[in-house]
Computed example of a mutant assay.
Amino acid sequence: MLDVENVTKEFGATRAVDRVSFAVERPGFIGIIGRSGAGKSTFLRMVNRLTDATTGAIRFRGRDVLALKGAEKRAWQSDCAMIFQQFNLVPRMDVVSNVLHGTLNRRSALATFFNLYPAEDIHRAIDILDRLGIAEQAAKRAEALSGGQQQRVAIARALMQDPQIILADEPIASLDPMNAQVVMDALRRIHEEDGRMVIANLHTLDTARRYCDRVIGMRDGRIVFDGTPEQLTTGVARDIYGADASFSEAATSTSLARLDRPARAKETELL
């Protein structure tokens, strides 16, 4: 389905992404991990065509998406939805209108200007919100929702595009552990139930192991690991993050159980 061939992105003398190559044969849930500055976000932005590559090719079902222009490029961005760390919602707009923004690429400029949507799109938006457990928030302003709810609105907006690929750039980085779990559960369920490919940039190893079918590790713009979650050992993680023997996975964990353990230990001491 997806073939990435020697993709490189240079910013002046800096090579943010360095000859990245891999292939995806069927829809999967793929996690890309690595420290900040490893090139993860730049790579996803190239796939979505928010950023142009310097060299290389990204082929989806045989078509090089890096060569698309104009209407074909916009159509690809509908097929390849993007979810961001900071949600990118319109704060003062109601939730259902934010979700309906997922249809902008296929609507006329006049309809967009007057905020006119077909009834079937409105019903579909509410159905998607219901699927994500937040239909009761449809009439509220986006800014009134919690971070986890806002990220689910962003996922709903992506689903309104009916994409073949969902790209998620650090979707849980700004969320607490409970909301992080809800968001990742939602993305995994969408992958399994809809058969959509999901590629997510992640910081935490436990999240990658729990939700991903395949994990790609990036360091200094290059792929240094490509394997199953079971192959993502602590030693491999040290190499990906460029860490020494003092590296502790607990420091990157989003697990509720792990985070709660120090609190329980403290309670035991007090008793």
Rank of each mutant, 00 (worst) to 15 (best):
F22N: 01
A23C: 05
A23H: 12
V24Q: 00
R26E: 13
R26M: 11
R26G: 00
R26F: 03
P27A: 00
P27N: 02
P27K: 11
P27C: 08
P27V: 13
P27R: 09
G28V: 05
G28E: 12
G28S: 04
F29W: 06
G31M: 12
G31H: 12
G31V: 11
I33D: 05
I33Q: 05
G34V: 11
R35G: 02
S36D: 07
G37D: 07
G37T: 11
G37I: 03
G37M: 07
G37S: 04
A38Y: 14
A38W: 13
G39I: 06
G39V: 04
G39H: 13
K40F: 08
K40W: 08
K40C: 10
S41T: 14
S41F: 00
T42C: 02
T42D: 08
F43C: 02
F43T: 02
L44A: 04
L44E: 09
L44N: 01
L44T: 07
R45K: 15
R45T: 13
M46I: 13
M46W: 05
V47T: 09
V47R: 00
N48L: 06
N48H: 12
R49K: 15
R49C: 12
R49V: 12
L50G: 02
L50T: 04
L50C: 03
T51L: 14
T51K: 01
T51V: 14
D52V: 13
D52P: 07
A53N: 05
T54D: 07
T54A: 12
T54P: 13
T54I: 05
T55R: 14
T55H: 00
T55F: 04
T55N: 07
G56F: 05
G56E: 08
A57I: 04
A57N: 00
A57E: 10
I58H: 13
R59I: 00
F60G: 14
F60C: 14
F60N: 13
R61T: 15
R61S: 15
R61H: 15
R61K: 15
R61L: 15
G62A: 13
G62F: 11
R63K: 15
D64F: 06
D64Y: 12
D64P: 09
V65E: 12
V65Y: 12
L66K: 08
L66Q: 11
L66Y: 04
L66N: 02
L66A: 08
A67K: 09
L68M: 10
L68H: 00
K69R: 15
K69A: 15
G70L: 06
G70D: 14
G70Q: 08
G70K: 13
A71D: 14
E72F: 02
K73Q: 12
K73E: 04
R74D: 04
R74S: 08
A75L: 00
A75S: 00
W76M: 05
W76G: 09
Q77A: 02
D79C: 07
D79Q: 14
D79M: 05
C80T: 08
C80W: 10
C80Y: 01
C80I: 11
C80E: 02
C80P: 05
C80R: 07
A81E: 02
M82P: 03
M82W: 01
I83F: 01
I83E: 10
I83Y: 07
F84T: 00
Q85G: 03
Q86P: 12
Q86W: 10
F87G: 03
F87S: 06
N88W: 04
L89N: 02
L89M: 08
V90C: 01
V90Q: 02
V90F: 14
V90W: 10
V90H: 06
R92W: 05
M93T: 10
